[in-house]
Amino acid sequence: MALKSKLSTRTQSKPDIPTASMGDIAFLIIIFFMTTSIFSRDKGLKIVLPEKGEEVKIKSENIMTVRVSSKGKVLIGDQVVEIPQVRELIIKKLAENPDIVIALKVSRGAKYRTMIDVFDQLKMAKAERISLMPVREEGG
């Protein structure tokens, strides 16, 4: 009976959830995500590898062989070129024959960055058909 009178006087005030800590919760969640995730940084040069065993018949005049020796010397056809000149030479060759397929043969002893430099030049020359050929013999 005593309780009832207390309850009737309290119906005026509404229940109140303190929301002052929402900011704290939000910042904690931010810090969690900041430490567990990374900005995606995928960027690179795309290539599609040929299927194994699928030897597409290409006329030999449509193939341009670019060889890279283990010391980083580049041979296009039978011309020795410096890497920055590769791009212009390939643009010329593409203008002569747009169907050209570029066979890139890089020696196993060459540094990966050399191959990427040459590949980069080919990409900048907008060569569409680039084929990476494995080089088996030693002595590049």
Binding site: D42, K43, K46, I47, L49, V106, R108, A110, Y112, L132
Partner: peptide, 27 residues
């Protein structure tokens, strides 16, 4: 960038065997 290309080419051959043909060189 200073890895020997021989290692990379071996992996590319392995990827060809696995028929994972879409490759991107991260740069």
């Amino acid at each position: 960038r200073d890895a020997a290309y021989g290692t990379v080419t071996d992996i590319l051959e392995a990827l060809k065997d696995a028929r994972a043909l879409k490759v991107t060189f991260a740069t």
